Amino acid sequence: MNKATKVTRKHKHLRVPVLPEEEEQIARNARAANLPVAVFLRNIGQGYEARSILDNRRVEELARINGDLGRLGGLLKLWLTNDERTVAFGEATIRALLAKIEATQDRMYGVMREVLILKATKGQR
């Protein structure tokens, strides 16, 4: 920022005594949120919930899984509407497709479970 765009305000520095292991934990949490320690602590102190970059990765993973389910559902819909492109689909193919949908749902539930467990364990600290 140059002087013309710099916001003028009196900066206050808060001093908080912490143990070395607490300092390390705060630094790890700041890194997980992809923030500098000062910004992380300021945000937490103002009541903002820290979002981990892991949360974003899980959301992206859930979006990919959702896309997989959409594609699998599209194939099933083609078969159910007797689309000519699915003439070669036999019962074994449909059973395999349904098994794949179920496995993909299980994957999605696993990711959601991990997110909820991670969130719950963070809340207990």
Rank of each mutant, 00 (worst) to 15 (best):
L41K: 13
L19V: 06
G47C: 08
A32Q: 10
I53P: 04
K3R: 14
N34I: 04
I65P: 05
I53E: 03
S52L: 04
A50C: 01
W79Q: 02
L78Q: 05
N34H: 03
I101Q: 05
T86C: 07
H13P: 00
R107W: 00
T86Y: 04
R31T: 12
R107C: 04
T93Y: 06
V16Y: 08
L14K: 11
Q25P: 06
Q25N: 10
L118M: 04
T104S: 02
Q105R: 14
H13Q: 14
A120W: 09
R28K: 15
K3Y: 11
L78V: 04
I101N: 06
V115W: 10
V39K: 15
R51T: 15
I53L: 08
D68V: 07
T86E: 02
A92R: 15
R9S: 11
T121H: 13
Q46Y: 12
E24D: 15
M108H: 08
P36T: 15
E91F: 05
L72F: 00
N66V: 12
R64M: 07
G74L: 10
E22L: 03
I44T: 11
G47A: 05
Y109C: 02
V37D: 02
L14N: 12
E60N: 11
L14E: 11
M1D: 09
E84C: 02
K77L: 04
E49N: 01
V16W: 13
L19N: 15
P20K: 14
P20T: 15
V18F: 11
G67P: 05
R42P: 09
A96E: 14
R51F: 09
D68N: 12
A92Y: 05
T86W: 04
E23N: 15
N82W: 03
L54I: 11
P20W: 03
A103H: 10
L97G: 02
R125C: 06
W79I: 02
K122E: 15
E23W: 15
A63E: 10
V115F: 03
W79G: 00
P17H: 10
R31Q: 13
D83S: 06
A103D: 13
L78N: 01
K122Y: 12
D68Y: 11
K3Q: 14
L97E: 03
I94F: 05
I94W: 12
S52K: 08
G47L: 09
N56P: 00
N29G: 06
L97A: 03
P36V: 06
G47T: 01
L75M: 12
R51L: 13
R107S: 06
T8A: 08
V18N: 07
L72R: 00
R71C: 00
E49Q: 14
R28M: 12
R71S: 07
L19Y: 13
I44C: 01
I101P: 03
L14T: 07
R113D: 07
E21N: 15
R95F: 07
M1P: 02
R58V: 06
G73M: 03
